[in-house]
């Protein structure tokens, strides 16, 4: 009852409003099969410019496959992915920093592959590392950084790609709670400053609610959008707050329902 007043439910699962042309990412009828297994089945998803959408689902719901298809790492069996602003940036589950480079050089590599000149790269990398509070550690090698620091370098590198769309594949899953919390702040701050659109995949429902303007629940095998919630909680949010907790309980209930169907 308290939830009913708290939540405005999206009208229809996976609905794509044809009039809403101001999208940063649009996925239509996306299907992926590996042999006989259908991982994604005619998935529709549209993300508005500047929106943060969290995608949750049980194991095997094709979250990672979805991101790989959007990022162009894999080809769909059928369906389309449309990102009008070009290639999206992707932040990996493990930071995937190159261990022979310093933090700064890791960020600069993204800038270099974007075609920036040497002088520009130096300035831009300094700015991005300062933005994630790593200016002092710019010349540290990857093995000299903690897990949280690595993911901040990874975030700086993703931002260095200069893309309007940022895809995130459970990037904070391996971090401790406090570190994860600061990275949530960091991500939302970066989003505010850059106006980037974020598609955040996670199995952590609270994290999904903490970050998302919208939370999308995927079914498992095959993955498709079963339900979505608009998160009406104002920022700044806290992961421990009762509002975040209440919505998380409701979403988790549906997630459990999805998992039980496979029992």
């Amino acid at each position: 009852m308290s939830l009913a007043t708290l939540l405005r439910r999206a009208p229809e699962a996976g609905a794509v409003d044809p009039l809403d042309a101001d999208f940063a990412l649009r996925v239509q009828g996306l299907t992926k099969r590996f042999g006989d297994a259908t991982v994604l089945d005619a998935l529709d998803l549209q993300v508005r410019r500047g929106e943060v959408v969290s995608v949750v689902g049980a194991s095997g719901c094709g979250k990672t496959t979805l991101l790989a298809l959007i990022a162009g790492l894999d080809r769909p069996t059928s369906g389309t992915v449309d990102t009008p602003s070009g290639r999206p940036a992707l932040m990996f589950q493990d930071a995937t920093l190159l261990p022979w480079l310093t933090a700064r050089r890791n960020v600069e590599l993204a800038l270099r592959l974007r075609g920036l000149g040497r002088a520009e790269r130096t300035v831009e990398a300094s700015r991005l590392l300062a933005a994630v509070h790593l200016a002092e550690h710019a010349d540290a090698r990857v093995h000299e950084l903690s897990g949280g620091m690595r993911q901040r370098v990874s975030l700086a590198r993703a931002l260095a790609q200069g893309s309007d769309v940022l895809l995130m594949d459970e990037p904070f899953a391996a971090l401790d709670a406090i570190t994860r919390d600061t990275l949530h702040d960091e991500l939302l701050r970066a989003r505010e400053q850059t106006g980037a659109t974020v598609l955040f995949v996670t199995h952590n429902v609270r994290e999904a609610v903490r970050l998302g303007d919208r939370v999308v629940l995927l079914s498992s095998r095959p993955g498709r959008v079963v339900r979505e919630w608009v998160v009406p909680i104002a920022h700044p949010r806290r992961i421990e707050s009762p509002e975040v907790g209440a919505l998380s309980v409701e979403i988790t209930e549906h997630l459990r329902e999805e998992i039980r169907r496979h029992g």
């Binding site: 509070h133 550690h137 093995h143 000299e144 950084l145 903690s146 897990g147 949280g148 620091m149 901040r152 406090i178 570190t179 600061t182 960091e186």
Partner: peptide, 12 residues
């Protein structure tokens, strides 16, 4: 400030 503290504590 929180991150600076975490960095100091967490860094190998």
């Amino acid at each position: 400030a929180l991150e600076a503290g975490l960095d100091a504590l967490d860094a190998p």
